[in-house]
Amino acid sequence: MRSSLLGAMRAVFVRELLLFWRRRTEVANVLVFFVIVTTLFPLAVGPERLELAHIAPGVLWVAALLATTLSLTQLFIIDYTEGSLDQLLLSPYPLTALVFAKLAAHWVLTGLPLALLSPLLAVQMALPDKAMPTLVLSLLLGTPVLTLIGAIPAALTLGVRGGGVLVSLLVLPLYTPVLIFGAEAVAAAAGQEFAATAHLSLLAAFLVLALAFAPLACASALRVSLD
């Protein structure tokens, strides 16, 4: 039973990767959004390097956060309208585990590329080189938290008209702690290096908490939504 639970989780994971691959232009849109939003700032604020470097941590983090929020509206909606979500709920395996696999795949396809792409965009924001590792690390720790937390309102608003905007309204306030510590970590690394570890540890703590509770909450939200 245990090994077949892992088999089921792997099937969910592989299925998501396949689906994303077959709709890769849509997925790429999230990354393009991230690139465009961050590119708008040097254009609007002006090419003053000091000024850009000052706002860079905040801009990069807000852009990553908005891109993740954008991707969340797509998380369950097609599975919901096509009826595959019904079938997922009828699996003999714990729904929490299957939801976890689904969210893991979603992060691998959105959060991970965002984090890996961020140094490139940080260059145009004139972020000091010494802050690059912290930027990537903060996004690697922070974006899974965004995906995990955001999945709960995404599940709750299924079947609600205009659910997409509602997800953003519900989820953005929940994102503030992650945003604050994420952006602060990068800013600290750009200034004096010693302070960043505290912020990163807090982000890691958020991640552990989210990993423990969000899939469970998301699974319950799905059961409520499909009732």
Binding site: L18, L19, R22, G83, D86, Q87, L90
Partner: peptide, 13 residues
């Protein structure tokens, strides 16, 4: 085993 009025398939697969 439940067959809903929706097929539960994904077009991309």
């Amino acid at each position: 085993a439940y067959l809903g009025h929706l097929n539960g398939l994904r077009d991309e697969l």
